[in-house]
Nucleic acid binder design. Structure first.
Length: 120
DNA sequence: AGGGTGACGATCA
DNA sequence: ATGATCGCCACCC
């Protein structure tokens, strides 16, 4: 074994395409009338801390229910017209707001045990 | 190689 | 609640 490279521990070494497909799957699993956050999706996809990548994927992959993904606390992060459209689409799915943010108490989709004791 | 960017997120003033 | 800062990650000059 010559020059064996060590991978930084703790970091996912899977290719971005793997993670990307997982993120896509997670996003597509969001039921109508529910929402999730960039960060939560990253965690659910096994990619904690990669909220920004979730955004990138969201923009790059067509056909995803992008409007069901909001910022932490239910904030609409999309600027301008796009943000208005997102809110409109959500309200169309009976998602309610509390001021400028989604009422997460009622609509946030909880993925299977993001944290919590054993068993996922 | 080096630096800038973003639909982020948590923390602090 | 608002704005600044810092940490994070992949992508694009």
């Amino acid at each position: 074994m010559s020059t064996k490279k060590k991978e930084p521990a703790g970091r996912r070494n899977k290719t971005s395409s793997d993670l990307r497909s997982q993120v896509v799957t997670v996003i597509r699993s969001l039921p109508k009338g529910t929402v999730s956050t960039y960060g939560a999706i990253a965690v659910a996809a096994g990619w904690p801390g990669a909220a920004r990548q979730v955004v990138r994927i969201l923009r790059q992959v067509p056909g995803l229910p992008w409007w069901r993904v909001v910022g932490a606390g239910g904030a609409i992060k999309l600027p301008g017209e796009s943000g208005a459209e997102q809110r409109f689409r959500l309200q169309m799915e009976s998602v309610t707001f509390r001021g400028v943010r989604v009422d997460m108490k009622k609509h946030e989709f909880l993925f299977r045990r993001l944290k919590s004791p054993k068993r996922w």
